[in-house]
Amino acid sequence: MKIIKFLGVVLAASVLSSCGGKVSKRELKTELDSVSYAIGMDVARNVKTNVSEIDSELFIQGYMNVLDSTNILIKEENCQQILSAYFQKKQQENMKKQQEEAEKGKVLGEKFLEENKSKEGVKVTASGLQYKVLKEGTGAKPTPESTVKVHYHGTLIDGTVFDSSVERGEPTTFGVGQVIPGWTEGLQLMSVGSKYKFFIPQELGYGARQAGEKIKPFSALIFEVELLEIVENK
């Protein structure tokens, strides 16, 4: 986090100090009014995200001590060092937490797939892709070079929806070889008109990568996929 982000907090602290803790309620009449308010909003979001545990009273005390050049508790040359050390520690803590959550998600995904593969109707390919035929079509099958039109509904193993053309009400068109490995393999099992359910292990999904806000590293994924059309079959 850049220290410049604290500019808006400094301004807010100054206002609070001069107004006895009361925040004025003004209308936005000019462009500068809007910019000033927007800076306050932006900084507040950053403070809540990065330093939610900040001690407001000590912050204001440090700000006022520097303005008055009196009772300064930290030497100026140590200030940046303290801040850098703090944010480095926070970054390491966050990375450790993310790694622990990813490992936990990986274990849960493996357990889910291990139990799922023995359920009625579930088939498993040599790669580890699991699928269930919901409806079998009679049309042609795509190749890795095909372009297809599909409807799909994607969830995590806990049922959280992360993407769905069904909910958007509009099918999606893409190349069979341009998606995650689990999709590329699964689509080639399907005939046009089919509807399958894919249970995709993390190594056939996004692996160690985060994909959007909801798909964490090492996540197993579930898709209901309906193959509507082969737009181009090379």
Rank of each mutant, 00 (worst) to 15 (best):
L83P: 01
S84F: 03
A85R: 08
A85T: 06
F87M: 04
F87N: 00
K89Y: 08
K89D: 03
Q91L: 07
E93D: 11
E93I: 08
M95S: 09
M95G: 00
K97W: 02
K97T: 03
Q98C: 01
Q98V: 02
E100W: 05
A102R: 00
A102E: 01
K104G: 00
K104Q: 01
G105K: 01
G105V: 00
K106G: 01
V107R: 11
K111D: 15
F112T: 09
F112Q: 10
F112G: 15
E114G: 02
E114H: 07
E115H: 04
V122D: 08
K123H: 10
V124Y: 01
V124D: 07
V124N: 12
A126D: 13
S127T: 14
G128E: 15
G128T: 14
L129Y: 09
L129W: 12
V133A: 08
V133W: 06
L134S: 02
T138L: 08
T138W: 05
T138F: 12
A140D: 08
A140W: 00
K141W: 05
P142D: 14
P144N: 09
E145K: 12
S146F: 03
S146K: 06
T147M: 04
V148K: 02
V148T: 02
K149Q: 14
V150L: 09
H151F: 09
Y152R: 13
Y152P: 08
H153A: 12
H153W: 15
H153D: 14
G154Q: 09
G159S: 04
G159M: 05
T160W: 15
S165N: 12
E167M: 04
E167C: 00
E167V: 13
R168F: 09
R168L: 11
E170S: 10
P171D: 12
P171C: 15
T173E: 15
G175W: 06
G175M: 07
G177M: 11
G177P: 06
Q178D: 12
V179M: 11
V179Y: 14
V179F: 13
P181M: 10
G182A: 05
G182F: 10
G182N: 04
E185Q: 14
G186S: 14
Q188L: 06
L189S: 09
S191L: 02
G193I: 11
G193W: 14
G193H: 11
G193A: 05
S194E: 03
K195R: 13
K195I: 14
Y196P: 07
K197S: 13
Y206F: 09
G207R: 03
A208E: 14
R209I: 00
Q210D: 02
Q210C: 03
Q210I: 11
Q210A: 11
A211S: 14
A211Q: 14
G212T: 13
E213S: 10
K214N: 12
K216V: 06
K216N: 13
